[in-house]
Amino acid sequence: MKPNVFESWTKGYVLKDHITNKNIEVGDHSYYSGYYHREHFEDYCVRYLSPDLDGVDKLIIGKFCSIGSGASFIMSGNQGHRYDWVSTYPFFFTPDLNENAANGYMEKGDTVVGNDVWIGSEAMIMPGVTIGDGAVIATRAVVTKNVSPYTIVGGNPAKEIRKRFSEEEIELLLQSKWWDLDIEIIKKHIPLLCSGNVKDFVAGIKKEE
């Protein structure tokens, strides 16, 4: 068995320090906790995304995201499988069968994860999905469509469970863009970040402007 690249189940790592694939972009302070699946994020979690190709769909992850062990991002569209054709078989990409075959590949666009998103262990994110800031993806959820900001989703396919805050509070948080503040300002307001008091937190950081 291959050695575990993670020291223990309590240890993750900052993603930016371990990304070599040019088609993956990750913001500051986002981390991966991969102990139970033993391998590095870009080796295990990002599927079908070649670091050698230009112009392919990208995986873009914002700041302060938490990604659980074994979460997977399915990339690069449909891989040539077309369910609207007579056969779903990818003849175009198959040696000895590709003569006169049409290329069925269809791009899905970039997969985008916002800021302060929590993705549970073994959740699956399908191609071209956008997950809004502050969203929570439940363990083993299969996300097939966009997720609104500060929304908790779960199940297969993933459906909304509830909003994390009121619409007014969500709007305040989105307008604040606290994740873009200088880290020293963020540190000063960690006590309120670790509370449910949205209005006081937003009022506090506004005083820093």
Results as ranks from 00 to 15, higher is better:
E169Y: 11
G196F: 13
L192Y: 02
V202T: 06
N146K: 00
P157Y: 04
S176A: 12
E167Q: 15
F201W: 04
L192M: 11
S195Y: 03
L174I: 15
L193T: 06
S195V: 04
I185G: 07
L193P: 07
D180W: 05
K188A: 11
V202M: 03
S166W: 08
G154D: 03
L193H: 04
P149I: 07
E169P: 05
P149K: 03
I186F: 11
Q175F: 14
W178D: 04
S195M: 05
F201C: 03
E184N: 14
E167A: 13
N156G: 06
P149F: 09
V147H: 00
G155A: 04
I190P: 07
L174C: 13
V198H: 03
I170H: 05
D180P: 09
E168H: 15
G196P: 13
V202K: 03
I190A: 08
R164K: 10
R162E: 14
L181N: 12
K159F: 10
A158H: 01
Y150H: 05
R164G: 11
W178E: 01
V198Y: 00
V202E: 07
E167T: 14
E171K: 12
C194P: 12
N156L: 04
L192I: 04
P149S: 07
E160H: 03
R162A: 13
N146M: 00
H189Y: 09
V147N: 00
I186E: 10
E184W: 15
I183E: 15
E167W: 14
I152K: 07
N156F: 10
N146C: 00
K163I: 09
L174K: 12
I185M: 07
E184I: 13
P149M: 05
S148P: 09
N197V: 05
D180C: 13
G154N: 05
Q175G: 14
